[in-house]
Design a protein around this nucleic acid. Structure first.
Lengths: 128, 128
DNA sequence: GCGCTATATTCGCTTCAACGTATATGGAAA
DNA sequence: TTTCCATATACGTTGAAGCGAATATAGCGC
């Protein structure tokens, strides 16, 4: 097993140690989401969301895909298995939080996908 | 499964998002350790260690036991299963880091316990 | 080219956490 | 009680991180 440095772990935890970023990750657990829908679902100013997404991108926790004007973000598991394991456990814990569900409810309205589908996808995101 | 709030998760990650605290946790993974040996093994000023231990205590990640003049600290798993799972994965990742091993080597000198024993105990600390 | 929209970045400010130093507490031994 | 030792806490300073507001970039349509 590739050994993760303490520094890398510290950076991972710093990235996770913020309420807004945890809420974003919980949304992305359900699949790829557009920036506009993130800031719509979380009801946060667009620059705030953008700054946190940049932070997550620098930390390697998410990746971005451009589609015309829209940017879609999705989860990206770290290369080091130990880090990936930590992240998976963290996502499972985040998914269980009730506020994550209510954020997903709002996202479900915005993208017209049933809440049940989103929740199922989120529950599946950290499998194996 | 008892659901952990996002706030609790954020606090957990804040507690983990510090190099010194990760090194302390890595030592405690090998078992109960006295404050003097922590600041001896990590080669950090005593007030620094004490402050971080207080932080970890407030976060519920460690518990303390007084023995005469000495204070012994040990790991304490959070009550919420989701949080405990995150912590376990984190400890496994921390244990794998090479700097943790060199800290344990120094601890091994201080307490006259073979490094192999400490490493084995640390590897076992997060089992099931 | 121009304007329009979605996203990203910069600026100034405030809040917070870590540090070193010094000091306080709390228990043991004389 | 006095003294000493291990640990904890208080104080003042410093640097990093978050935010709101404003501005910049990047791609699409006209």
């Amino acid at each position: 097993m590739k050994t993760a440095s303490l520094d890398a772990l510290e950076l991972l935890f710093k990235a996770l140690a913020d309420d807004t970023r945890l809420r974003i990750l919980a949304l992305l657990a359900a699949g790829e989401v557009c920036v506009c829908n993130i800031h719509g679902a979380l009801d946060l100013p667009q620059p705030t969301v953008s700054r946190h997404l940049a932070y997550l991108r620098r930390s390697g926790l998410v990746s971005a895909r451009r589609d015309g004007l829209w940017m879609h973000y999705r989860l990206a598991l770290p290369a080091a298995p130990a880090l990936a394991a930590v992240l998976k456990a963290s996502l499972e814990a985040v998914n269980a939080a009730s506020s994550s569900t209510s954020d997903r409810r709002k996202l479900s309205d915005l993208v017209s996908i049933p809440l049940k589908t989103l929740n199922a996808a989120a529950a599946n995101c950290c499998r194996t």
